[in-house]
């Protein structure tokens, strides 16, 4: 399968008073066209920064990004504006990602005005209507303001805005985390329908493992700026290899009574991502950690077909 987007050893360090914060450290992956890559991890693992890097909403510290086979690491101003048509983003918080002073139709039509692609107001209106219909927003909401909408509808507005320029690739940063389960299911279904209909490729960033399993074809598990394991969604859940993935999966409270008895409870908390020590970042909390894990950085290795992990013990 042809990859639509490829990241090679991308890095993002932030300067802080205490030293360099390694938000994303040497991350590589590729996404085939029309598929969904899930990125899971806990807060502070760098998953959101990763999404922003791909869209050039943060600048890279190092590494390369390829989109449809072309190097877009340093796109230049004009190429960047073109890229923003084909690469879009859906944001986490439907409450703060919409300008409170703009109406629904103004928000959705803003891309048209930026790229000046509508010849008349009537044409623009027609396009807005089509988009609203596509994401399941009633036409009577055109003039509504974001504060008048509930979370699910706001997220639909955010999706419509992202779809306005008919993108090929969308970064979805926790798009359903702020929503209740029944609304969450509506939005997830919508996103899957849109993907099929328009052949979209998604990067789906979330901390929710059941959501990521549902929507993803392939999953990357991140820990402190590194991808520790990458596998097909079902493979990962059937047979997690990395000790962190194992602990993460075992930590999900499952809606089953009686609950599972066996579970791995990790010791301690996330270490600081500022000037991290050499060795495996997960070693301090790992039950299998050996001396080697504290000294040598584990390399990304291909374990099965299309399956990668960073661990000395596998």
């Amino acid at each position: 399968m042809e990859a639509i987007l490829e990241a090679k050893n991308i890095r993002k360090y932030f300067k802080t008073p205490k030293g360099m914060l390694h938000a994303v450290d040497d991350v590589s992956f590729s996404i085939p066209k029309g598929k969904t890559l899930g990125v899971v991890g806990e807060s502070g693992c760098g998953k959101s920064t990763l999404g922003l890097l791909l869209l050039h909403l943060e600048s890279l510290t190092g590494g390369q990004i390829f989109f449809e086979g072309r190097d877009i690491t340093n796109p230049g101003k004009r190429r960047l504006k073109e890229l923003r048509c084909s690469m879009q983003m859906i944001f986490q918080d439907p409450f703060s990602s919409l300008n409170p002073r703009m109406s629904v139709s103004e928000i959705i039509s803003e891309p048209f005005r930026i790229y000046k692609i509508c010849r008349s107001p009537a044409e623009m209106e027609k396009k807005v209507d089509q988009l609203m219909d596509l994401v399941g927003l009633a036409p009577r909401l055109r003039q509504a303001y974001p504060h008048e909408l509930d979370g699910g509808r706001r997220q639909r507005v955010g999706i419509a805005r992202a779809l306005a320029m008919a993108p090929k690739f969308i970064v979805c940063d926790e798009p359903v985390s702020a929503l209740d389960v029944s609304i969450q299911a509506q939005i997830l279904n919508l996103m899957q329908d849109l993907q099929k209909e328009m052949g979209l490729t998604y990067i789906f960033i979330t901390h929710d493992l059941s959501v990521v399993r549902h929507i993803s074809d392939e999953i990357c598990v991140m820990y402190l700026g590194k991808i520790v394991e990458q596998a097909r969604a079902q493979e990962l859940f059937r047979n997690p290899l990395h000790p962190y993935t194992q602990a993460l999966l075992s930590a999900i409270p499952r809606p089953k009574v009686p609950p599972a008895t066996e579970r791995i409870i990790l010791k301690g908390e996330l270490a600081s991502p500022i000037e991290p020590k050499p060795g495996c970042r997960f070693a301090p909390r790992c039950i299998h950690a050996q001396d080697r894990c504290f000294q040598e950085n584990p390399e990304r290795r291909e374990i099965g077909q299309g399956r990668f992990a960073c661990c000395h013990c596998i």
């Binding site: 922003l52 869209l55 909403l57 960047l80 504006k81 923003r84 048509c85 879009q88 983003m89 944001f91 986490q92 918080d93 703060s96 990602s97 919409l98 300008n99 409170p100 803003e110 891309p111 930026i114 790229y115 955010g158 805005r161 992202a162 306005a164 320029m165």
Partner: peptide, 17 residues
Amino acid sequence: GEEYIRAARSIGAGNMR
């Protein structure tokens, strides 16, 4: 710092806009 500013940037809005 609001997210809608980042959202505007992501759809290609320039500084003036």
